[in-house]
Computed example of a mutant assay.
Amino acid sequence: MDECARVLELLGMLLYVGAWLCVLGATVSPRWLSMSTSLLPVESYELGLWETCVVQDTGGMECRAYDSMLGLSPDLKLGRVLTCASLAVGALGFLVAIPGVSLVNGCEEDGAKRTLGTTGGLLGMLSGVLCLIPVSYVAHVAVVRFFDDTLPDVVPRWEFGDALFCGWAGGFLLAVAGLLLVLASRSAGREPPPVAGPQRRYQVMNTVLARAEYV
């Protein structure tokens, strides 16, 4: 494997770990959406996939988990399912990609290493897409509800929380990390054409002269 492929491979693996941790942080964070009201300026509300929280102006926070999953809105249900699937696929892709790394000696065959690296990269790209879908959908629903003209202006609206931006970053970086692993595996599979040395050229010349003498 050439140096360019090694750099892409190592960069992809490091980016893979960081992006997966971002997705994990976004999944467990209660700050997908936030809301503050003018009636209670000392309190704000945070909404996540697993719980809702009331944040005091003094820094205190009180959270309460949802009583039932079936009673959740469709965007939160989709967020739970796809973010958990993203984490599972991402972890599987990372475990598959580890034996395909050139620095790991567990698998000696180059063809098997390229296959494992490519498979791990594709799973990483899939994991990123699975994370971007629920994050974008929750953001879309929040925008639609925020600009809903049927609601009075005095009604508080949900706005983007920090977890949405963390989820966008994690999903995008997971897709980039998977692409880097695929490119590294494809680059490793390309072997330069053999260069004819002096001995090879001497054998070719002898073959040509022998054919000429036979004719």
Score class of each variant (00 low, 15 high):
residue 190 R to F: 12
residue 164 L to I: 10
residue 192 P to D: 12
residue 78 L to Q: 15
residue 127 S to G: 15
residue 161 G to A: 13
residue 214 Y to N: 08
residue 179 L to Y: 12
residue 130 L to S: 04
residue 203 Q to D: 08
residue 80 R to N: 01
residue 22 C to I: 00
residue 44 S to Y: 00
residue 57 D to A: 15
residue 104 V to W: 14
residue 13 M to Q: 08
residue 19 A to E: 06
residue 213 E to D: 14
residue 147 F to L: 13
residue 106 G to D: 09
residue 113 K to H: 08
residue 97 A to C: 05
residue 164 L to M: 15
residue 61 M to H: 05
residue 169 A to W: 01
residue 180 L to P: 05
residue 150 T to G: 12
residue 50 W to F: 15
residue 9 E to K: 01
residue 25 G to P: 09
residue 75 D to G: 12
residue 212 A to T: 11
residue 203 Q to I: 02
residue 192 P to C: 03
residue 106 G to R: 14
residue 126 L to Q: 09
residue 16 Y to H: 10
residue 114 R to D: 06
residue 199 Q to L: 11
residue 124 G to E: 09
residue 89 V to I: 15
residue 161 G to L: 08
residue 197 G to L: 10
residue 23 V to M: 07
residue 2 D to A: 06
residue 88 A to C: 10
residue 77 K to D: 08
residue 66 Y to C: 01
residue 114 R to N: 05
residue 86 S to E: 03
residue 192 P to L: 06
residue 213 E to F: 09
residue 24 L to H: 12
residue 120 G to E: 08
residue 197 G to A: 12
residue 214 Y to G: 02
residue 170 G to C: 07
residue 27 T to S: 10
residue 33 L to D: 09
residue 45 Y to S: 00
residue 58 T to D: 03
residue 149 D to N: 09
residue 157 R to E: 00
residue 35 M to D: 00
residue 17 V to I: 15
residue 164 L to E: 14
residue 184 A to V: 00
residue 57 D to Q: 11
residue 111 G to M: 03
residue 120 G to S: 06
residue 128 G to T: 08
residue 167 G to F: 02
residue 181 L to C: 09
residue 78 L to K: 13
residue 101 V to E: 09
residue 97 A to F: 05
residue 161 G to D: 12
residue 47 L to P: 04
residue 74 P to D: 11
residue 195 V to H: 13
residue 187 S to G: 15
residue 202 Y to F: 07
residue 13 M to R: 08
residue 144 V to P: 04
residue 109 E to V: 01
residue 149 D to S: 14
residue 142 A to H: 06
residue 39 L to E: 14
residue 151 L to H: 04
residue 126 L to H: 11
residue 71 G to T: 00
residue 211 R to W: 06
residue 141 V to K: 14
residue 62 E to Y: 09
residue 170 G to N: 03
residue 210 A to F: 06
residue 54 V to C: 01
residue 190 R to H: 11
residue 122 L to M: 14
residue 44 S to P: 01
residue 79 G to T: 13
residue 142 A to Q: 12
residue 74 P to M: 08
residue 74 P to T: 14
residue 98 I to Y: 05
residue 110 D to E: 13
residue 171 G to N: 00
residue 60 G to N: 01
residue 5 A to E: 02
residue 133 I to K: 06
residue 8 L to F: 11
residue 38 S to K: 07
residue 56 Q to I: 00
residue 125 M to A: 10
residue 25 G to C: 15
residue 135 V to P: 01
residue 159 E to F: 04
residue 95 L to P: 00
residue 190 R to L: 14
residue 57 D to W: 11
residue 29 S to F: 06
residue 22 C to D: 10
residue 158 W to H: 10
residue 209 L to C: 05
residue 28 V to Q: 13
residue 45 Y to A: 02
residue 8 L to E: 07
residue 145 R to L: 07
residue 44 S to R: 02
